[in-house]
Amino acid sequence: MPRFLRSTPFALAAVIAASAGGLYAAATLGVRDADSPHTFGVRPGGAAGTAQAAHAAAATPSPVAEKTDPVNTALAAAPMNSVQAGSGPELSPAPDAWSRGSAQFELFRTWEGESTLWRGSRPQIILGPEGNWFPAGQPGCGEGAYVISFRGTEGDVLAAQLRDSTGALTRSGDESGRAEGWMLIDDCHLPYVQLAGAPGGPASAEVGYTVHEYHRASS
């Protein structure tokens, strides 16, 4: 058999093998993971996907940039164990947590109530949940805080004061000589309210109050 006839089958086989290898390589590159860093070229929609990712990153606030919280600012700035005139910071709903220096306070519970005040009588304590004694002023205090708002339901003038666990007066609420006020106290003090104003005023008045109890977060 002539030499060219003997070499032809091998040449054809080599051509077929080379073609098959090229097809395999092309197919492999075509189905390579589009997210692979070794993918050649730009996959369809890649530019749009990159633009969308950049837009989403720009819309997401940086964790370094903190939004100023007016409630946290007000509570952090108010003196502890103080009585303030006016409605105070907006606490509806009450924040789950607020900070004061390095201390973090977390909301434990909230309650509301209403009591009758009598003119000429001694200041009356704001009651605790379900009309029980206010849950503060006990031994071992110092880990909690209360934000208390109070208001005369008919606009009657009120005054407030704070007493410690022994009953000694620690703060007189001259600043709250109006129909509403608020207090920021620790759990070593007790809040009291009294009907104030001119002697010729009503013999009694209703006072409504809202109390938010916070506990210091464990470190």
Score class of each variant (00 low, 15 high):
residue 44 P to R: 14
residue 139 P to Y: 13
residue 203 A to F: 01
residue 39 T to G: 04
residue 24 Y to N: 06
residue 31 V to W: 04
residue 31 V to Y: 01
residue 75 L to H: 06
residue 103 A to N: 06
residue 53 A to Y: 09
residue 90 E to G: 00
residue 158 L to D: 07
residue 154 E to P: 00
residue 153 T to I: 13
residue 217 A to Y: 13
residue 199 P to E: 15
residue 108 F to S: 08
residue 20 A to K: 11
residue 206 E to C: 04
residue 186 D to E: 06
residue 39 T to L: 15
residue 31 V to N: 03
residue 98 W to L: 06
residue 171 R to S: 12
residue 73 T to Y: 03
residue 90 E to I: 02
residue 142 G to Y: 14
residue 8 T to M: 07
residue 145 A to Y: 06
residue 4 F to K: 01
residue 87 S to Q: 14
residue 12 L to N: 05
residue 111 W to R: 15
residue 58 A to G: 01
residue 179 A to H: 14
residue 123 P to I: 02
residue 219 S to T: 00
residue 191 P to E: 03
residue 95 P to I: 00
residue 99 S to I: 02
residue 39 T to I: 06
residue 85 A to T: 06
residue 41 G to E: 09
residue 60 T to G: 04
residue 168 A to S: 12
residue 66 E to N: 10
residue 158 L to T: 07
residue 21 G to L: 11
residue 65 A to C: 11
residue 172 S to Q: 13
residue 201 G to K: 08
residue 164 D to H: 11
residue 219 S to I: 01
residue 171 R to W: 11
residue 101 G to T: 04
residue 89 P to Q: 10
residue 72 N to K: 01
residue 169 L to R: 15
residue 200 G to Y: 02
residue 184 L to H: 12
residue 60 T to Y: 08
residue 121 S to A: 15
residue 187 D to N: 15
residue 210 T to G: 01
residue 126 I to A: 01
residue 116 T to L: 13
residue 77 A to H: 08
residue 45 G to W: 09
residue 50 T to K: 13
residue 82 S to W: 01
residue 37 P to D: 11
residue 61 P to V: 13
residue 88 G to Y: 11
residue 134 F to A: 02
residue 70 P to D: 13
residue 120 G to W: 05
residue 127 L to K: 14
residue 121 S to Y: 06
residue 135 P to I: 07
residue 58 A to D: 12
residue 138 Q to H: 10
residue 90 E to W: 07
residue 1 M to P: 10
residue 68 T to W: 00
residue 56 A to M: 06
residue 153 T to N: 15
residue 183 M to T: 04
residue 195 L to A: 02
residue 60 T to E: 09
residue 95 P to R: 05
residue 90 E to A: 13
residue 145 A to N: 11
residue 124 Q to I: 11
residue 90 E to D: 05
residue 88 G to R: 03
residue 11 A to C: 03
residue 199 P to L: 15
residue 131 G to V: 01
residue 98 W to E: 05
residue 68 T to R: 12
residue 66 E to L: 12
residue 183 M to Q: 08
residue 170 T to C: 15
residue 12 L to Y: 10
residue 174 D to S: 08
residue 21 G to T: 04
residue 13 A to E: 11
residue 76 A to S: 14
residue 84 Q to I: 00
residue 181 G to K: 07
residue 14 A to H: 03
residue 1 M to G: 12
residue 175 E to F: 02
residue 1 M to S: 15
residue 114 E to H: 04
residue 97 A to V: 01
residue 99 S to N: 05
residue 43 R to F: 09
residue 116 T to M: 10
residue 108 F to Y: 14
residue 26 A to R: 10
residue 118 W to L: 10
residue 209 Y to A: 12
residue 158 L to N: 10
residue 139 P to K: 12
residue 214 Y to V: 00
residue 210 T to D: 00
residue 122 R to D: 12
residue 99 S to R: 13
residue 119 R to T: 01
residue 150 F to E: 07
residue 18 A to G: 15
residue 32 R to Y: 02
residue 171 R to L: 04
residue 137 G to S: 02
residue 132 N to L: 08
residue 77 A to K: 09
residue 59 A to T: 08
residue 94 A to L: 09
residue 192 Y to A: 04
residue 146 Y to N: 06
residue 194 Q to G: 12
residue 132 N to D: 12
residue 170 T to V: 06
residue 111 W to E: 15
residue 189 H to G: 06
residue 48 A to C: 04
residue 71 V to W: 09
residue 43 R to I: 04
residue 121 S to E: 14
residue 212 H to Y: 03
residue 62 S to Y: 08
residue 54 A to Q: 08
residue 170 T to W: 11
residue 24 Y to H: 05
residue 88 G to S: 02
residue 204 S to P: 06
residue 95 P to C: 07
residue 19 S to Y: 02
